[in-house]
Design a protein around this nucleic acid. Sequence first.
RNA 1: GGCCCCUUCGUCUAGCGGCCUAGGACACCGCCCUUUCAAGGCGGCGGCGCGGGUUCGAAUCCCGUAGGGGCUACCA
Length: 514
Amino acid sequence: MTIDTSKLDNSVRVRFPPSPTGDPHVGMVRSALFNYAFARHYGGKLVLRIEDTDAARNTEESYQAILNTLRWTGIEWDEGPEVGGEFGPYRQSERGEIYADTAAKLLEAGKAYPCYCTAEELEAAREKAKAEKRAPGYEGTCRNLTAEQIAAYEAEGRTHVVRFRMPENRTISWDDLVRGAISFESVNVPDYPLLRADGSPLYTLTNPTDDALMGITHVLRGEDLLSSTPRQIPLHEALVELGLSKGVPEFGHLPFVMGEGNKKLSKRDPEASFSFYPRTGYLPEGLVNYLALLGWSLGNDEEIFSLDELVAAFDGTRVSANPARFDLKKCEAINAVHLRALETEDLAKRILPFLDREGLLLGGTDGHLANEEEWRTLLAAVPLVQERMTVLSEAIGMLGFLYTGDGSDARHAFALNEDDAAKVLTADAWPTLTAAFAALDALPEWTAAAIDEALRTALIEGLGLKPKNAFTPVRVAVTGRRVSPPLFESLELLGRERTLARLRAADARARAAA
RNA sequence: GGCCCCUUCGUCUAGCGGCCUAGGACACCGCCCUUUCAAGGCGGCGGCGCGGGUUCGAAUCCCGUAGGGGCUACCA
């Protein structure tokens, strides 16, 4: 909203700091995307930092999934795991000494203090405050302990956490990149823990410390962290005072990505999980485009753009402060536009793994998913289905009939969709099928144009059928479904042998029903 | 409860005092095209939460109010 562009040059350094717990979430991907676009737009750097300070919740699978997610999406990080950088290491679990040292300095300077309250005592205080309708935060019990009191606690064998000492009577404010002026009164921000009783660091310490130490200039993160900003700013200031940091970063809080109802998109919703998209056959181009639209717009009426175009346009000034509802229908529609724009060969390559996953391919040599014939068929079929698809997995249903065999090979055998067959291959369909068989069996030249002419002559002129009634039984007989790619081209691709065999089988079925 | 954020069609948004009888996209509904389904074309439905101000003039500025959301951990 209000960005001083004079300060935004190639010194821009932003970061994406995921916590490797669970499946990557689309909200997380959007956050990474905005940071990436912002960094690239200003010629700056994107730092990937893994915030794995909660050993109990982190998993290696999640860590790998995050890296794979970013790669699939096309988000490249300039510093971080696997690429290194001068501010590493980039996994917080490997930065223990840095945090211990920082905490010690904070403690020594009086910016932080040991707190001997037990979890039970804190819980009791919270309950009491709630009952008395007071703010339930930490009340500063140990904020001004004397040396004697500390010694007494130690003698008791009590352990302590380290708390940050919030400044008193101060208005903490900043100019949020997304929301403009925001301010909190420090009395409403309790002293918060930096170190656990076992001495291990908490997010509250590691996140600002690393932002400071890694020279982060702009923090673009979710709105859920907005209320932690007033505690982080004084910590940043303390780090500057201690000579550990050059300055306090700018903050921008991105709107939530919502799901059904008015709740944050939860892990319950299948579309919340990033893995849904590659699996279903969304394109990176499509997902990136849609995700960028969640809280951002180009400003004109254009909604279709590439990652590069996003980078070119994303200056950080057009981010909306409103929460955005995730709309899978629109995501599909955007994806479909990108899918339709693909070159034939490109689309064919992307479809291949889906056919393979379904067991529809015999496969080629040298690790190719398809043999030459299968690949040629696909190249010819792609133009027929391209504008009928929104996601890649749909190719399975639409093209499956071309990749089913007669049972003698390793592929799935051809099978009719039972619902469609029951509706269409009825008793009165057999004359149509018989006539179609005869016309095609006699056809000298097996091309779409010739098939078209032969079927029209035999069925529409010969039997006096309406096109819809003439072609639907043929379609179901040969492709197995009432909805298929264009019929004549489909028959041409399928070939005379399989077409006639399927017509004959369908004819027999229809006669049996008579 | 306290603190903070948010509020334009069902959804995502454009709009930053007059260009707005509010524009686009998705969804939805018609019609056209058509061998199915799509795609495409044309058209339709549908919105500034409410109340006060400020102003010649407010979706746009201010105040209030209502509603929604977040935070309030020795999680991140």
